[in-house]
Design a protein around this nucleic acid. Sequence first.
DNA 1: ACCGACATGTAAGCTGTTACATGATTCC
DNA 2: GGAATCATGTAACAGCTTACATGTCGGT
Lengths: 192, 192
Amino acid sequence: MFIMSIQHTILGFLSWRPLTGYDLKKAISSQEFLHWSGNSNQIYTSLVKLYRDGFVDVRTEQQQNLPPRKIYTLTERGRQELRCWVQSPPDPPEARNAFLAHLAWGDQLTAEELDGLSGAYEKEVEARAAMGRERMRRGADSPNRTPRERFLWEMAHENRSRAWETELEWVRTLRRGLKKFDDAGQEKRRRR
Amino acid sequence: MFIMSIQHTILGFLSWRPLTGYDLKKAISSQEFLHWSGNSNQIYTSLVKLYRDGFVDVRTEQQQNLPPRKIYTLTERGRQELRCWVQSPPDPPEARNAFLAHLAWGDQLTAEELDGLSGAYEKEVEARAAMGRERMRRGADSPNRTPRERFLWEMAHENRSRAWETELEWVRTLRRGLKKFDDAGQEKRRRR
DNA sequence: ACCGACATGTAAGCTGTTACATGATTCC
DNA sequence: GGAATCATGTAACAGCTTACATGTCGGT
């Protein structure tokens, strides 16, 4: 029994069509909501394990002037495992936001330093939020196999998009609040 | 050089006052935004490493009828490391939401199964959102050392709270959408 | 009589990351 | 000439989890 989400994600993509490790890497990394570290190695080692456990089959295809491709297909056992996992209660969501941890001990910093830190974060979140909006605008690249599946994928993209918008509003509120402390400090200094 | 956030979180709490590993465990786990797995072991091993690297000092205090306590204090080097880390650009936030991954292959499920899955998630998110609201209502347990620090901690709590509210709205939108597919399916079946 | 809080640790194992290795083709 | 794409892998290491180990006190 395994719980590792990336292996199930691989089974999920293979349930659509046979794919190589390289294809899987592109498929997984293009979906922000699937959240993957970007370590392609993990995919190749996962495929070895999935094969060992009988969840996938593999055949090697030679190409001229290009490296050989290993094409993986889902076995019946793999399909069962996928279905079982989809129905199982998911792990609770966890948001790890290092910025919040930095902020917690940010009172050591000067107003300028805190402004720099939070400003950089605002810019980053702004960029992510814009990417989310852009993706929603041009229609999320969802599988178009059934209307319901399309809906599920659009909602998954919507989830990430909304999360970034919320974060953006929050960081702006934060910075407005910090500005007041800054102004207060400057007033004090002026009065001296 | 280390990047591990939990070690810096420990340094952060020790910058306020000397604490034991057990105290740290309680302090860290009580702050949702610091995001910690709950593995107390990690704290004890981190403290050993921090001591080895000269970031903390330790003295052992014997207690009668209770296990001895090891009280850790921040060294000057530790204080420098903390300040340096706080200023450094934080890792980008990452949200890993297993529910979204399940959803992505949820079209295999029946309407009833999907309703069960999303309903359970809604309940969980509802509970977390309620906890967040409750914490904001009774005033987040923030350190009250300076007004600015208090503000920073309240904003950190606010961040988590808003995130749960957004998630709650989203899951309700999802379930309303799924209901339509369900109704459509039932209509089709009725017409047959 | 049992559970939770107090208080710390070792050992084994699993997961995940980083560095390294190969090698052709196409685009700038 | 250098970077990116295609395509897969090994080896070493760092981080995190799980199981185990110990022992008292106070509440129900």
